[in-house]
Amino acid sequence: MMGPMPYVILSVLLLVLGLAIVISKRNAIVMLIGVEFILNAAALNLVAFSRHGAGDLSGQTAALFVIVIASAEAVVALAIFLNFYHRIATVDIDRGDQLRG
C-alpha cells in the first residue's frame, strides 16, 4: 500500500509550479491558471490525507469546497480582468500599479 507521500510530492510540485507561474508571469490569464494550480495542490493534499489518515470523508468534503470556491474565484477574477482590460486595454497586470506607494 502506497502511503500519502507520492500525493504530497505531487502536491508540492503543483504548489511550486503554481507559485512560479503567479510570480513570474505577467499575463493575467496565465496567473489565474497558476492560482488554480495552487488551489488544486491544496485540494489534492486534503483528499490524500483524508484517504490515508482520518478515514472519514471530511477531507473530501473540504476538497469539494475548494473546487467550488476555485470556480467562484475564477469567475470573480475573470470579471476583474475584464474590467481591467476595459480600462487599460491589456491583460498585463504590471500595468495596473496605480496602488504603488
Binding site: 507559485l19 510570480i23 513570474s24 506607494g101
Partner: peptide, 16 residues
C-alpha cells in the same frame, strides 16, 4: 514606499 510597487507579483513573492 519603495516596497509598495503596486504589483501583485511582488507582493506574492514576498508572501511566498
Amino acid at each position: 514606499r519603495l516596497g509598495q510597487t503596486g504589483r501583485v507579483r511582488n507582493y506574492l513573492l514576498a508572501l511566498a
